[in-house]
Design a protein around this nucleic acid. Structure first.
Lengths: 140, 140
DNA sequence: GGCGATTATATCGCGCACGATCAAAAAGTC
DNA sequence: GACTTTTTGATCGTGCGCGATATAATCGCC
């Protein structure tokens, strides 16, 4: 077996599938002037409003060099507020605005829409997610 | 079930796993001044030397706005040559240089190294690849 | 063979990703 | 309490991804 063939490696299917799925979300998100990564961050904040940049980074596996400008853009779009923590001046707390919270309702239909649009076997999707979660736990 | 939770959706595990795996490759590739995407393109060219930009794009699911600058950088690194096709002046043919071919040998160990380094259950990896391939076929 | 439609690549702009580095605050050490 | 170390974000530079658009070559059709 030739390991060096593109179609023999796990790396490419991961890379390709990730981008293909992102492309599915994109048309739905751009209606609200959101990027895919911003949507990820929003989901984190809906669960952890007031989170620090560090916490968001841990959840999204991103670091400040990506998050700082991204959060600034989202602040400009009035989705959130950034302010230094009172307890620890090193840390920056991110709080959703009214508008940021409103998107939780507005975008609530997206997961279901995606499932329908992708029309991918639900069992396979669950199995895939389970394997990916195991891989992530293994690597992160 | 709350579909809107990050950990309930397929999108994030895909995104995260893809980036984590890329990070595994990165230290091995940077020794040869290669990026992950350049490595993907190299694998395609090892199988299809003389391919057009279009063909590479079909295999890698990338288009010219990504490939043109990437291929120019690889040409500057003397890994390949770009030249207009004689038959069809619209098309650009990519041919590996001696150096580009040499990397096929030099990098032959990477897949095996990755498997060992990741230390991920091989059966699960195969299963994962199979599901990803199905998803890609479904979406591409 | 002329001419509109299609195709292949290139260019531009923007937003990630991420390595490297820096600055400031906090925590640990003596 | 001064000093070192660690933690937290911010900044900078480079390379993707990709939507939008441009340009040139080819094709299709009459």
């Amino acid at each position: 077996m030739n390991n060096q063939q593109l179609d023999q490696q796990l790396c490419f299917p991961l890379y390709a599938a990730s981008r293909l799925v992102t492309r599915l979300y994109q048309p739905l998100l751009e209606q609200h002037n959101l990027t895919y990564t911003q949507y990820i961050v929003l989901m984190i904040l809906w669960q952890h409003d007031g989170a620090s940049v560090k916490l968001i980074g841990q959840k999204a596996l991103l670091s400040s060099n990506t998050l700082t400008p991204l959060l600034k853009r989202m602040e400009q779009a009035q989705l959130l507020k950034r302010q230094r923590s009172v307890n620890d001046e090193r840390s920056v707390e991110i709080n959703l605005t009214e508008q940021g919270w409103q998107l939780k309702t507005t975008l609530a239909c997206i997961p279901q829409q995606l499932i329908e649009q992708a029309d991918f076997d639900l069992d396979k999707a669950r199995q895939l997610k389970s394997l990916l979660d195991q891989l992530i736990t293994h690597l992160a």
